[in-house]
């Protein structure tokens, strides 16, 4: 019989959520408490297996007595907190965050959940004007912090730029990047400890980059693809998926997901193989699995060609 460590019992604190008094464990974040109560809360930069960076601000809620809204993903619950999750201020900020992103980033491949939130909050990105023409290759990566050419307001600035295809394993389409920091976290402290990418530049010119924008094969990247696994908008995508989408052959309705165990080493990582036309087109691992927490290595994520020879 094996012992299971359950830890000390947590004290409960009382929090008022949208007029309802609820008891939640001390130390939880507001987001955990809200989800525990079944209160739907949008998130973009939050993921269960990463440390919250609270950068996107779409999960904000109104805490009584505070001047500004609070990010639910990282604000711990406190005894007596009075929280509103659907007040006019909350709805406005959530709508605007989604709208500002939609006006500057290509969200066509964003998770269905994100698209659902955009519909819920009535996002209208077109009111900022027609999108500015895309930047030339590498131009955004060369932008320096500080002074910029003033706009005339006739077009809306965007992050549009050519896709980066530098190897056969995955592509980086930063026109779709919402700068949620998830890939940086997964590449660094929260999973892989490789630190091949970081946020570079500043302000609207901030971007995810290798040092001096060197090509991925020249960087520290070990191709674990954990960045791909956490990307919520399709900015990072396996080359196999990208090629099919480009040729119009990506057909989610004809795909099935097969669960299996990686055969490369003795760790036994669970895999989810997305299969189309009897070929593996993408490999993931479940976020909620104790072994991987969604993360894999290069062999598990990309080492599947030998299966289909």
């Amino acid at each position: 019989m094996s012992a299971v460590l359950v830890g000390l019992p947590k004290r409960l604190v009382t929090v008022e959520v949208d007029g309802q008094s609820v008891r939640v464990p001390e130390g939880q974040t507001l987001l955990e408490a809200l989800r525990g109560q079944g209160v739907a809360t949008p998130t973009l930069c939050y993921l269960e297996n990463l440390a919250p960076v609270n950068a996107c601000r779409v999960c904000v809620v109104e805490v009584a007595g505070q001047r500004t809204l609070a990010p639910a993903c990282s604000r711990p619950v406190e005894e007596g907190m009075v929280v509103a999750t659907d007040s006019p201020r909350v709805r406005h900020s959530r709508k605007m965050v989604l709208e500002l992103l939609a006006s500057s980033v290509d969200l066509s491949l964003a998770d269905d959940e994100i698209k659902g939130w955009m519909a819920t909050y009535g996002v209208a990105p077109e009111r900022y004007g027609p999108p500015a023409p895309p930047a030339a290759a590498g131009e955004r990566d060369r932008r320096r912090a500080g002074h910029h050419e003033p706009p005339d307001g006739s077009v809306a600035a965007t992050v549009a730029q050519p896709v980066k295809i530098q190897d056969d394993l995955y592509v980086r389409d930063y026109s779709k990047c919402i700068l949620c920091y998830k890939c940086v976290e997964a590449c660094g402290e929260d999973a892989q400890n490789t630190f091949a990418i970081a946020v570079a530049g500043r302000g609207f010119d901030a971007r995810i980059a290798t040092e001096f924008d060197v090509e991925l094969p020249d960087s520290a990247c070990v191709y674990c693809g954990n960045c791909v696994g956490v990307c919520p908008t399709g900015a990072l995508m396996p080359k196999s998926e990208w090629d099919l989408r480009q040729s119009g052959q990506w057909r989610p309705d004809d795909q099935q997901v097969t669960e299996t165990i990686c055969s490369f080493c003795g760790v036994g990582c669970p895999l989810e193989l997305t299969v189309q036309d009897n070929r593996i087109v993408r490999v993931d691992s479940p976020l909620d699995h104790d072994i991987t927490r969604g993360h894999l290595c290069v062999k598990g994520r990309f080492g599947f060609e030998h299966v289909q020879h």
Binding site: M96, V97, H148, G201
Partner: peptide
Amino acid sequence: RDESCGQCVPCRVGTVRQEESLARLVAGG
């Protein structure tokens, strides 16, 4: 717009949209 660090969406994109909107206003929008 120049000095926003770029970390959070409201400021990173909001300062850009604010500058664009003001430019339209000044131009007679």
